[in-house]
Amino acid sequence: MKRNYLLPILQFFIFYSVAKAQSYVGISTGISRDLNNIKESFYHIPVSIQWKPFGAVHNRPVFLELDYDIPFPANGSDNAYTLNSSLPQQITLQKEIRAYVFTASIGFIVPIYRNKKSNSLYLNLLPVGICNQSFKVEYNKYDKANYTILNRDVNTHLTSLVTSMEAQFNFHRKFMIMLHLQSPLLANRGDYPLSYRFVAPLQFTFGYNFIYHSK
């Protein structure tokens, strides 16, 4: 389904990027913190790929971006109970929640500053993105045969729309640092109360711009 959305967009970019001005592929990584879960925040290692087929020319300042967030586990605990009189009636189980986030976005570039040494500051606005968030919950040492967890967390997997923006500073055109803020999924989580919400990552990344097509 995702491919059906992406294919015409990719075709558009490939068609219009031929024989145009400087084209970039930027790859960056760093650290990401979730701003939407206050109690147990999710941390990630983001891997971001930007494709700017027209560079940052003023008449076609559009680009594509793919972000994948490799999760660190967030820790929490829940209580479990048993009717078995030979066992403790209540125990506390530690749980690990991993939030996998993949986003494909279209954005446009707003140049803010540029100097003669090819240092530049851009504001990248990504009004529409398709994001998949997958939460995996694991309880450690859970004796399923004897204990039942109260108000347990479960896995969820949802794809929906997001919006995001980023500030990008390029050093000598090739090196970059970026601050990227993405909204949570624009979707309903359902009626069951979970301990976590959709992730809204704030990414701080650094990387390199590969210039593959110059004038």
Binding site: Y81, N151, R152, V154, N155, Y192, P193
Partner: peptide, 13 residues
């Protein structure tokens, strides 16, 4: 309940 097919989760809501 993912561990017990056909049963609900234990909840206090």
């Amino acid at each position: 309940d993912p561990d017990n097919p056909g049963l609900s989760r234990l909840t206090a809501y």
